[in-house]
């Protein structure tokens, strides 16, 4: 997962921006913890995308993954 995330200040931060759909989809495809969030909170038409995941928390620039934290 290090291809897509960096460990910063105690959280795993997505390395890309909010328009990086390919990276978000690739990361979700490779992740065994992916769970789709409420449909109204999704921002990618492709369902299996970290942008749509229950365990992402949006921040100022993009999102942090909270499931990955729990498994690190």
């Amino acid at each position: 997962m290090d291809k897509w995330f960096t460990y910063i200040d105690g959280v795993w931060r997505f390395k890309f921006d909010t328009n990086s759909y390919s990276a978000s989809r690739e990361a979700a495809k490779a992740c065994r913890f992916f769970v789709e969030d409420d449909e109204d909170e999704q921002t990618d038409d492709h369902s299996q995308s970290c942008f749509n995941c229950l365990y992402r928390r949006w921040g100022l620039n993009c999102f942090d993954c909270y499931k990955k934290v729990g498994t690190s």
């Binding site: 909170e41 949006w58 921040g59």
Partner: peptide, 18 residues
């Protein structure tokens, strides 16, 4: 209707703050 609010480290939202 869903209204997006500020996302900032000082705000204790769950995942998207709406």
């Amino acid at each position: 209707t869903r209204h997006q609010l500020f996302v900032h480290p000082d705000i204790p939202y769950t995942s998207h703050n709406s």
